[in-house]
Design a protein around this nucleic acid. Structure first.
Lengths: 121, 121
DNA sequence: CTGAAATACCTTGACAGGCGAGGTATCTTG
DNA sequence: CAAGATACCTCGCCTGTCAAGGTATTTCAG
């Protein structure tokens, strides 16, 4: 089944920026790409996605403009800015460090002293 | 500098359970172990820690009891339960899957279709 | 002896991100 | 014509984090 929300929390921005690194895109399509890439195990919920777009635009990491397609529903396209790219690389560095730490912490919580009572039930 | 909270968010429970897999321990010590293991780059804040203890105990993943040390401040020890161990293994499986997906999504957001406008500024 | 720091616990209230539910409008297809 | 896909958006709740504040005990420098 799908990944729990909290494991994803905080990564939404990086995911969206990564998608936009490939070129301008719009909400619905980015969402679809996520589902496809993960074989349906992960989906950016719409409310989350659009909230993130607004957050990212406010931060100056993306710009938006309306598409001019004559056919189909109107689309709001997003483009990553220079600041956005820099932010993305920073997020990736953070992610690498954090996941390394997490791996270490979760593999071995390490109370290390090992003297106290260790009775189990 | 320290890792941002949101990257760690949701992993607190797994971290605590991992620590308790090594044997019973108490809040202050677990916290110290985290700081030591990560060279100070990550710290479980006290409020977060004690909130998590209550959450985990309520879920039946840990049990608690007061230590009987004659010296020093009183300590509340925590022990992981069978349910807690199972939960820990489940969390680890989830983490493995989620981090794999995340890695994929963040490395390549993949709008894949690559037909639309791709102008950048 | 005194006062600061360390050990050890705990609660309250605010905040931020995720998302269920609900809504709008257009186009396609049976 | 109705249903479903495409495409956008908002409101309000929930949950986990944490700054700030608090208690009590022990240790140790001055």
């Amino acid at each position: 089944m799908s990944i729990t929300a909290d494991l994803i929390r905080g990564h939404t921005d990086a995911i969206i920026l990564a998608a936009l690194l490939q070129g301008d895109s719009y909400g619905y399509r980015i969402n679809r790409a996520m589902v496809d890439l993960t074989d349906g195990r992960y989906e950016l919920k719409e409310a989350t996605l659009y909230t993130a777009f607004r957050r990212l635009e406010e931060a100056g990491y993306i710009r938006s403009y309306w598409g001019d397609e004559a056919t189909g529903a109107r689309r709001r396209y997003y483009a990553i800015t220079l600041n956005g790219k820099n932010a993305y690389y920073a997020m990736m560095r953070e992610w690498r460090e954090a996941s390394g730490l997490l791996e270490k912490l979760m593999r071995f919580g390490g109370t290390d002293g090992g003297d106290d009572s260790t009775e189990q039930i």
